[in-house]
Write a protein that binds this DNA or RNA. Sequence first.
RNA 1: UCCUCGGUAGCUCAAUUGGCAGAGCGAUCGGCUGUUAACCGAUUGGUUCCAGGUUCAAGUCCUGGCCGGGGAGCCA
Length: 461
Amino acid sequence: MKGAKISDLLASAGAGAEVLVFGWVRTVRNSGSVSFLQVNDGSCLADIQIVVEGDALSLLDTTELSTGCSVRIDGTVVDSLGKGQKYEIQASSVQIIGHADPNDYPLQKKRHTLEFLRDIAHLRPRTNTFGAMSRVRNAAAFAIHTYFQERGFQYIQTPMITASDAEGAGSMFRVTTLDLGNVPMKSGVPDLTEDFFGKSAYLTVSGQLEAEIFAQAVSDVYTFGPTFRAENSNTSRHLAEFWMVEPEVAFCDLSGLADLAEDFLKNVFGKVLDRCPDDMAFFNQWYDKTALTTLENIINSDFERITYTDAIDMLQKSGETFEYPVNWGLDLQSEHERYLTETKIGRPVVVTDYPKEIKAFYMRLNDDDKTVAAMDVLVPRIGEIIGGSQREERYDVLTDRMRDAGMEEAEYWWYLDLRKYGSVEHAGFGLGFERTVQFMTGMQNIRDVIPFPRTPNNAEF
RNA sequence: UCCUCGGUAGCUCAAUUGGCAGAGCGAUCGGCUGUUAACCGAUUGGUUCCAGGUUCAAGUCCUGGCCGGGGAGCCA
C-alpha cells in the first residue's frame, strides 16, 4: 500500500477516508491521554496533525517519538476539533520508522538562522523555509521548460567541459586528470599533451556559443544547466556553480529579444505564484513583505526600456551622489543599476546599446560604430538578472572585433564558420536561475536558494 | 581579492571601565483530559574560534591565523 501525499490529502480527501501517511515528525505535544504529532512529507508547506489516543497511544512509546523521527501513520481523516487546521488524522497506529535522538538532532522546534542551516545543508530541506524553497525552485524550473516547449524552442544540452579558454570574462575551473603531485613537464611548463584532452580543458562558463550553433540550424533553442565561475566572489549574489537558462533565437534582433525576456519573466513569475501560493505567502510573510506585490506589479506592468546613453543621462541629472563616477563609456556600477530600477523607475528596466568597449566581442556592432546591441534586465534588489545581446552575424565585423579583443581567430574557426555559411541575425540571453528564485522569494542570500551552494572555500555535501 | 562587522552553552544572544561567564529556547525528569513554536515546575548545561603576547587579573586589550555576515569588484 502506497502512502498518500499530505498535499493531496489536505486538498481532496474528505473526512472519513482511511489513509496511510509517511513523513517526518515536526513537533510532538503530549497532553494527558492524547498526543498530537505534526507530520510533514515535503509535498506542501502545511503539516498534518495526527491525533493519537486510546489503543494507538497505549501501543506507542511516546518517549521514543521526537522531532525528526520518520513515521508511518495509519488512520482516518476527521474534521479537526481544534483550531488551526480543517482536517486531522485520527491514528489507528503510529510506527516509528527511523529515530532521531533529540540529544543531538540539530533541528529544534524553533527558528534557526540561515547561517546555521547552511552548515547542516543535509538537514535543512526538512525546515519550512527549505521545503518551500525546493518547491518554488521546482515550479520555476518546470515553468521555464514549459514556457519554451510551448513556443517551439528545443532544449539543447550543451557541454559542461570546454577547451576554449576565452569564452568571455571570468576565470574558469580547470579540468584535468594529471597527477598534481607529479605533473609531466616539458621545457619547464606542464605538458598538457599528456592530459586527458591533450590540451587545456575547463568547466563551461556559458553554453551560448554552442547554443548559437543549434539556433542556426533549428531556429529557436534554449539551454538550462549548470554553469561554473572560478571567480573569488564573496557576495550574496554569486555562486561558483549555478544554473543558467540561455535561449538563443534565430531571425531575431535586440528588440525581439527584449520582448522575449519580458514575456518570459512575467510568465514564469505568474506560473510560480499560481502553483505555489502557500510557499510564496510564506516567503512574503517571513522574508520579504513586498515579495508578492512586487511580482504581481511586474506581471501587470511593462518593463521600462532605455538605452545606456539614456541611463547615463538620467544618472547625471539625478542629483544623487554616487561613489563611482558616471560618464559615458564607463560601465554601470551596482549602485547605478539599483538607483535606476529601484528609485528612478521602480520596476524592471531593460538597458540596451552599451559602449562596445565594455561588452563582449560577439555582441553586434550598431550603426553608430560606438555601441553594441546588448541588453541587461535590471530588477530591484538583485540588479542584473538577465544579460543578453543580438549576436554579430557579419563575418568581417566579427573578426575585427576579435582582433581588437586580442583573440585567436583560429580557435574559433567553427564559430566563424557560422558567419560564412548561411549566417542570420540572431540573439540570446542568459538568465541566472538562482537570482530569479532569489528575486521571487525575497531571499537575501543566493546560498539559500540552491540546495548545496558552492562558493570559495565551500564544497561540503 | 579589498573594505567593514562579528565568532561566548546544542540554538539565539547578553556580560558596564580589564575584576566570580549569564538569560531565553532546546534537552532531561515530573505535572497537565484536545494541543497549535502547547503550557506549568525542576534539573542539565562552557577549551568564551585557534596560537602567541600585555597584565596581579583577559570573553574584554595587542599581534598573527581560521571561519562567518554585510558591502565592493567580477558577473548571471
